[in-house]
Amino acid sequence: MPFGRSSVRKPVEPVALKILVAGGFGVGKTTLVGAVSEIRPLRTEEVLSEAGRPVDDTAGVAGKTTTTVAMDFGRITLRDDLVLYLFGTPGQQRFWFLWDELAQGALGAVVLADTRRLQDSFAAVDYFERRGIPFTVAVNCFDGAERFPAASVRAALDLDPGVPLMMCDARERDSAKLALVAVVEHALERVDPEHRHASA
């Protein structure tokens, strides 16, 4: 009977990371989570009502009929050893009290932005900056929305130079996945500055 190391590899236990998907009302958070999730995403959406009309600004998203009232949840496996759990935050100000709960244990966040309503992204950017949570800004390129250079969007949002910014289509799995990969890499660089060189 031969002795020595077995050639059979043990299954790798994947590392699970928590990522938030944040941004203003109607920016595409639910769409992004649904586009990439390998499980049926959990959604807590309710139909927009007349009672909410005075507080839910639907300018620029007139076709929107539902809204997230707690969170969206999904999961994506990036590699055999890396799984992301995605938590989409509610966009309306009256539900912001949930953000602190959702942010606990998060590695980082993707802040979705809409150039038609860029001011709606300020609250999310400010939230993650104040708490030191690494984040990436992904400009969701809506059909018919004016395109602006990344440098102009960066200046308008007053982003720190180290914050990654990219264009994306939240409906497209590959595009949305790139935004998630970007925030994981950005967060790991913050934890371990040598990560960039090790992964290059």
Results as ranks from 00 to 15, higher is better:
Met1Val: 13
Met1Arg: 10
Pro2Val: 13
Arg5Pro: 07
Ser7Arg: 12
Arg9Gln: 14
Glu13Pro: 09
Pro14Ser: 09
Ile19Ser: 03
Leu20Met: 10
Val27Gln: 00
Gly28Leu: 04
Lys29Pro: 00
Thr30Lys: 02
Val33Phe: 05
Val33Pro: 06
Arg43Gly: 03
Thr44Leu: 01
Glu45Asp: 11
Glu45Phe: 06
Glu46Met: 08
Leu48Thr: 09
Glu50Cys: 08
Ala51Trp: 09
Gly52Ser: 08
Val55Arg: 13
Thr58Tyr: 12
Ala59Asp: 15
Gly60Arg: 07
Gly60Ile: 02
Lys64Ile: 11
Thr65Arg: 10
Thr66Phe: 08
Arg75Tyr: 00
Ile76Ala: 04
Arg79Lys: 11
Asp80Tyr: 04
Asp81Pro: 02
Leu82Lys: 07
Leu84Val: 06
Tyr85Lys: 00
Phe87Arg: 03
Pro90Glu: 03
Gly91Gln: 07
Trp96Arg: 15
Phe97Ala: 13
Trp99Glu: 04
Ala103Thr: 04
Gly105Val: 06
Gly108Cys: 05
Ala109Ile: 05
Val110Trp: 02
Ala113Phe: 08
Arg116Ile: 05
Leu118Val: 02
Val125Arg: 02
Tyr127Thr: 01
Phe128Lys: 05
Phe135Gln: 10
Cys141His: 13
Phe142Arg: 06
Glu146Ala: 15
Arg147Met: 10
Arg147Trp: 08
Pro149Thr: 05
Val153Trp: 11
Asp160Glu: 15
Asp160Ser: 07
Val163Met: 07
Pro164Glu: 07
Met167Cys: 11
Cys168Pro: 02
Ser175Ala: 07
Lys177Gln: 15
Leu178Ala: 13
Leu180Met: 08
Leu180Asn: 11
Ala187Met: 12
Asp192Cys: 15
His197Cys: 09
Ala200Ser: 15
